[in-house]
Simulated scan of single mutants.
Amino acid sequence: MNYTLFIAGGLSAIAALLHLGCIYFGAPWYRFFGAGERMAILSERGSLQPTLITLGIFSVLSVWALYAFSGAGLLPRFPFLKTILVLITFIYAARGLVGFFFIFSPMGRSPQFWLYSSIVCGVIAIVHIVGLKRQWSVM
């Protein structure tokens, strides 16, 4: 088993579960994690919009976790495994880099949200890169 891709999958799974926490705990969690005041207010008003958006993010992150677990050898080999893991890694890296550009123009979120979420995405990208490098020849 490739422990680095296992960790990468675990990080995506944790991120997915935190998004579920936002749905369950509502506005305080949306605020704490920096989703923006608009999302928090919509959540307080009982709007389905924050729930649907957050469920979408949860779903994507869950699939990403499963692909990393497959790449780690924990699950059977998924279709297009290498290609999709490379795309996941690229998306995490791009999100990590692009987020830094929004620190000074946060678009409804806090500068801290962009800083911390960019660091987290960058770290997850690095873990994926290391895991892919170690596992590439056997995938």
Rank of each mutant, 00 (worst) to 15 (best):
M1C: 14
M1H: 11
M1V: 01
N2H: 13
T4G: 09
F6W: 13
F6A: 13
A8S: 06
A8T: 03
G9I: 01
G9N: 07
G10Q: 06
G10Y: 00
S12R: 04
S12I: 02
S12H: 06
A13M: 01
I14A: 01
I14D: 01
A15L: 12
A16N: 00
L17R: 09
L18D: 06
H19G: 02
H19R: 00
L20C: 08
G21Q: 11
Y24F: 12
G26Y: 07
G26E: 02
P28L: 06
P28N: 10
P28A: 11
W29A: 15
W29N: 13
R31H: 06
F32S: 04
F32G: 10
F33N: 12
G34F: 08
G34W: 11
G34R: 08
G36M: 14
E37T: 14
M39Q: 12
A40H: 06
A40I: 03
I41N: 09
S43V: 00
R45W: 09
R45H: 11
R45G: 15
S47K: 07
P50M: 05
T51F: 11
I53S: 04
I53Q: 04
T54S: 02
T54Q: 00
L55K: 02
I57E: 00
V60W: 02
S62I: 01
V63Q: 01
A65I: 02
L66E: 02
L66I: 07
L66C: 05
L66S: 01
Y67D: 03
Y67I: 03
A68M: 00
A68F: 02
F69Q: 00
F69N: 04
F69S: 05
A72F: 01
G73H: 03
L74R: 09
L74A: 12
P79C: 04
P79I: 01
F80Q: 11
L81M: 01
L81N: 03
K82L: 15
K82N: 14
K82V: 15
T83C: 08
T83H: 10
I84L: 04
V86S: 05
T89R: 03
T89W: 08
T89N: 04
F90H: 11
I91P: 08
I91D: 11
I91K: 07
Y92C: 11
A94E: 07
R95Q: 13
G96P: 00
G96N: 05
L97Q: 06
V98G: 08
V98P: 04
V98A: 12
F100T: 06
F101Q: 13
F101C: 10
F101M: 14
F102V: 09
F102M: 08
F104C: 15
M107R: 14
Q112D: 06
Q112I: 11
F113C: 13
W114C: 07
W114G: 00
W114L: 08
W114P: 06
L115C: 00
L115I: 09
S118R: 00
I119C: 06
V120I: 13
C121H: 14
V123W: 08
A125D: 06
A125C: 05
I126E: 06
V127Q: 01
H128T: 09
H128W: 14
H128C: 15
H128M: 15
G131V: 03
K133T: 14
K133F: 15
R134D: 14
R134M: 15
Q135Y: 12
W136E: 13
S137R: 15
